[in-house]
Amino acid sequence: MNKTKTATLNATHATDMSLVSILGAAALGLVLLFAAGFAQASVMHDTAHDQRHAMAFPCH
């Protein structure tokens, strides 16, 4: 009985953790893509320029 309960708890815990890491990965990906593709500061724009054109991000 006790064993089953622990197993269930562990499973729930694991699910929550994986949801958190999924969200974390999505957020990190978003930050990276914003930096690479959309940040308008001119320094960012100049350094990322060729890559943006080649990847067809709307650039300027």
């Binding site: 999924i22 990965a25 999505a26 990906g29 990276l32 350094t47 890559q51």
Partner: peptide, 25 residues
């Protein structure tokens, strides 16, 4: 300039890879 192109390709594709991993999960 060429170095920056390599660098930002890494940044962009790492971002895309993270989204793929989210999709896999």
């Amino acid at each position: 300039r060429d170095l920056m192109t390599v660098g930002f390709n890494m940044v962009a594709f790492t971002g895309f890879a993270l989204f793929l991993a989210v999709g896999f999960a």
